[in-house]
Amino acid sequence: MSDSTERISKTLPPPTWIMDADYTIIDRNAQAEKFEKDYVISMEYAVEVAKGTCCAFQTDKKACKNCPLENKWAASDGFPITFMGRDGVSYEFFGKLVKTEHIWKLEIRYIDKPFESEGKSMLTYLNEARESEQKRIARELHDGIAQSIYSLMLETRGLKWTPFEEHQQKLQAIDQHFADVLLEIKSLATELRPSILDDVGLIPAINQFVEQTMEMTGFIIHVIVDGERKRLTSRGNVVIYRSIQEAISNALKYSGENEATIALDFGQKELRVTIADAGKGFIYDPYHLGFGLLNLRERAQSVGGTIEVETGIGKGTRITMNVPYKEGMS
C-alpha cells in the first residue's frame, strides 16, 4: 500500500479499519484485530449505520424511513452503534467514518471514551434524536401543511376574480389540493403514532407485524393468546406493540435461530407478554443493561409495568413484560 492510502500505524489507540471505495477492508491496526476477537463485528453493518441506511435505534424498516437523526450518522462527531461481545452481551460504542480521497477510515471507541471532540453520551444522542424529531415535525408543519393551507386560502379568495365559467375547474383543483393536504396530515400523524393500533386493535396489529416480518425475513414467529381479552390504555397498547417489535428485532439479529414465540396472557389485572427464542442467549446483568433491554424496561415502567429477563449462554432468551390494564397499577 502506498503512503497516499493513509496506511495506519499499528499503535493507534482506537480500533481502526481502512477500507477502499467499495468498503472492502485493506488494512487494520492491532486494536482492530483485538476488537474482532472480543466482539462479533460486521463491517457491512457498521458502514450501514454510519451512512444512515441502517438504524441502531429503530426496530423495523418502516421506522427507519423516518429516522429522527435524518441520516446524519456519518457526521464528523461520530455515531452510536452496538456490537455483541463473545460473551453474548451487547455493548455500546461510538463510531466515526471519515473519507479521504478514495479511502474510508472507520474508528470505533468505547462508550466511556467517546470522541474527544464532542464527548457525547448515548443519552445525549437520544435527547438529540428527540429534539431533531421535534424540529423535523415543526418544519413539516410550517413548510408543508401550513404553506399548503395558505395556498388554499389564496386559491379560494381568488375565485371572486375568476370568470364564472371557470369556477368548476378551479373548485376541482381546490378539492384535489384539500385531499393532498389531508393525506399529508394523516401521514404525519401515522409517524407520531402507529394508527394500526386504533384501526384494528392490539392483537390484529401484532399479527400483521408478525406476517410482515415473516414475509420479509423468513423468520418464523408463533403467536399465542390466552385468557379473556381485556382493553389496555392507549399508551399501554403502544408500549406493548413497540416492545414486541424491538424484542423480535433483537431475536432476529442475535439469537442465531430462525424461530421465536410471542405469548400474550390476559390476566385479571395485567397483560403478561412473553417473547422467547431458543437461541444463543447471553450473560444477563440487570445492573449493566444494553440499550435494547434498557429501552424495554423504561417502556414498561412508563405505564407502571415490569420486565423480567431469563437467559444464559446457550439457554435461549425469554423476555416477559407485565403491563397493567390501568396505568400505574401493577
Score class of each variant (00 low, 15 high):
residue 76 S to P: 06
residue 29 N to Y: 09
residue 66 N to Q: 08
residue 52 G to W: 01
residue 117 S to F: 02
residue 76 S to D: 07
residue 86 R to I: 04
residue 139 R to P: 04
residue 131 E to I: 07
residue 60 D to P: 11
residue 85 G to A: 09
residue 117 S to D: 03
residue 155 E to Q: 13
residue 118 E to S: 14
residue 131 E to C: 03
residue 144 G to L: 02
residue 74 A to F: 00
residue 103 I to K: 11
residue 87 D to N: 13
residue 85 G to K: 02
residue 112 D to L: 03
residue 31 Q to N: 02
residue 65 K to C: 02
residue 55 C to Y: 01
residue 25 I to C: 12
residue 85 G to E: 05
residue 124 T to F: 10
residue 70 E to N: 13
residue 113 K to S: 07
residue 82 T to A: 06
residue 151 S to M: 15
residue 75 A to C: 15
residue 139 R to S: 09
residue 138 A to M: 03
residue 99 K to M: 05
residue 158 G to P: 12
residue 136 R to E: 11
residue 139 R to F: 07
residue 116 E to H: 08
residue 118 E to R: 08
residue 157 R to N: 15
residue 108 I to M: 04
residue 55 C to M: 02
residue 103 I to Y: 15
residue 158 G to D: 13
residue 28 R to Q: 04
residue 113 K to V: 04
residue 44 E to G: 06
residue 37 K to W: 03
residue 120 K to D: 09
residue 87 D to K: 01
residue 84 M to D: 12
residue 147 Q to E: 05
residue 132 S to Q: 10
residue 110 Y to R: 10
residue 153 M to G: 14
residue 27 D to Q: 14
residue 120 K to C: 15
residue 142 H to Q: 06
residue 112 D to K: 06
residue 147 Q to W: 14
residue 131 E to Q: 08
residue 80 P to K: 00
residue 66 N to T: 08
residue 110 Y to L: 01
residue 115 F to R: 04
residue 118 E to D: 07
residue 159 L to H: 09
residue 138 A to L: 13
residue 128 E to M: 01
residue 37 K to A: 11
residue 42 S to D: 02
residue 80 P to T: 00
residue 33 E to I: 03
residue 153 M to I: 03
residue 115 F to M: 10
residue 91 Y to D: 04
residue 106 L to F: 10
residue 61 K to M: 06
residue 85 G to T: 08
residue 100 T to Q: 13
residue 99 K to W: 14
residue 42 S to H: 00
residue 87 D to R: 11
residue 80 P to V: 00
residue 106 L to S: 13
residue 50 A to V: 09
residue 69 L to K: 09
residue 37 K to S: 07
residue 42 S to A: 00
residue 107 E to Y: 04
residue 85 G to D: 02
residue 69 L to H: 14
residue 131 E to F: 10
residue 98 V to D: 12
residue 109 R to C: 02
residue 133 E to Y: 05
residue 82 T to H: 05
residue 148 S to K: 02
residue 87 D to T: 06
residue 150 Y to K: 06
residue 83 F to W: 01
residue 116 E to S: 11
residue 145 I to C: 08
residue 110 Y to I: 10
residue 111 I to L: 06
residue 123 L to M: 09
residue 98 V to S: 10
residue 141 L to I: 08
residue 35 F to Y: 12
residue 23 Y to E: 06
residue 146 A to E: 01
residue 70 E to Q: 14
residue 74 A to S: 11
residue 26 I to H: 06
residue 98 V to Y: 15
residue 61 K to F: 08
residue 21 A to H: 09
